[in-house]
Amino acid sequence: MKLKNLTSDKKDVVLDIVELIKPVGITEQLIRVGSENDGGYLIPLSAHQQDALVSPGVSSNSSFEISFADQGTKCSLFDASVLGPSMAHDNIEFHKVFWGVENNDDTINAIDWLSENIDKNQRNALQMDIEGAEYDIINHMPINVIDMFNLVIIEVHGFQRILKSENTENIVNFFKKITQNHKVVHFHPNNNISPVQYRGIDIIDCFELTLVRNDYPYFSGLPGSVKPHELDMPCVPEEIEISVNWDQIK
């Protein structure tokens, strides 16, 4: 990857983001929910009990959502690129639209929909895999809307763009927003794109984050790790798993 337009403080910006998304320790086990490879995520055991799950970005794999639906969770799925979830379920409601920040032919205003349809007083989870649209949506989303979710799983795309100065502000604001009242408890790199190194820091392009709200009762007070968990599996099964050197960065 050819790096252009780097600012002198780019390393500091990257390190600030790394510190925001390094996992914190918890005292309960992580479980894998969903498929073995892409479409499966690690979450805390107690977080598998939810009243509602909102999931924009379904594609052809609904195993994560079905696991919640089987437990009685009311699941709302959004994706204009598919006809529906991989299987029908009484607890799944499908919307054939993309998430966005306005309404048009194939896009729904995510903020308006959440404000009108999600009860902030119940247990809510958000799973978002929307191929890079996460930056604009989260940056437009009021913090009180994000705070409706005690569990947030986001697949982050295009992180290597942080190395180009024209992308810095939008990306930095995104990470500040999602960690304002939530903490990362699991980090997993997607192995679909190889990492690059910038001034001794591994920069991956795509990764999965599991976050819990600050009122989660099982924080250990100890740091977690970016090392692969025993339940992690490569998103692309025919490619080797990748890791980052963030634990060694001071």
Score class of each variant (00 low, 15 high):
70 D>R: 08
104 N>E: 12
64 F>C: 10
81 S>R: 06
99 W>R: 01
50 Q>N: 03
95 H>S: 02
70 D>G: 01
64 F>P: 08
70 D>E: 15
92 I>H: 00
63 S>P: 05
61 N>V: 15
117 N>T: 14
96 K>D: 01
77 L>S: 01
105 D>P: 02
124 N>G: 11
90 D>V: 06
57 G>K: 11
95 H>P: 00
99 W>C: 13
71 Q>M: 15
63 S>R: 10
99 W>H: 02
107 T>E: 15
78 F>I: 03
71 Q>L: 15
113 W>V: 13
90 D>M: 07
119 D>E: 05
50 Q>H: 03
74 K>C: 04
91 N>Q: 13
75 C>Q: 01
60 S>A: 06
104 N>Q: 06
86 S>G: 15
86 S>H: 04
114 L>V: 15
57 G>D: 06
82 V>W: 07
86 S>C: 10
71 Q>P: 02
79 D>H: 04
115 S>L: 04
91 N>H: 14
105 D>F: 12
103 N>W: 09
59 S>Q: 11
119 D>W: 04
92 I>N: 00
119 D>C: 04
75 C>M: 03
55 S>I: 02
95 H>L: 01
92 I>C: 00
56 P>D: 13
94 F>T: 00
105 D>T: 13
102 E>I: 07
95 H>C: 00
124 N>W: 07
67 S>Q: 11
